[in-house]
Amino acid sequence: MIRTAPASQDGLTIVPHATCTFCGCVCDDIELHAQGDRIVRAKSACSLGESWFKYHTAERNYPDALIDGQPATVDAAVERAAEYLHAAHMPLIYGLSNVTCEAQRGAVSLAELIGAVIDSHTSL
């Protein structure tokens, strides 16, 4: 049986069969070793995948949100974003390549709601 639940010992969390989302290969045989708020080891990952996992930490390095370059709360930023998107005649939703399918599905609903063009890296 494939063990998928994370195991924890000495403050080290081991996640077996983790999935790497750096490139389109989406390798799902990575063993992640996490300590505190960073990944210290990515077993089986290639050099690109390893640096991807080590580069993204769970530290609070950035403000929750920025409005016109000034730190703001998420709720205020969401409200401002909704105002801009609602007021626009021809809004665009772009990117989507580094987010989950669940977020993409939300983005399509939002595009339908505001009458937007929705596009990804595929069109580049």
């Binding site: 998107l85 809004p91 990117g95 989507l96």
Partner: peptide, 21 residues
């Protein structure tokens, strides 16, 4: 016509939401 670079270069859009890009 509706691909991002073309829309932006022509200046067709008036607000953009960028996700993971």
């Amino acid at each position: 016509e509706y691909s991002t670079i073309d829309l932006l270069v022509r200046g067709d859009t008036d607000a953009t939401l960028v996700l993971g890009a």
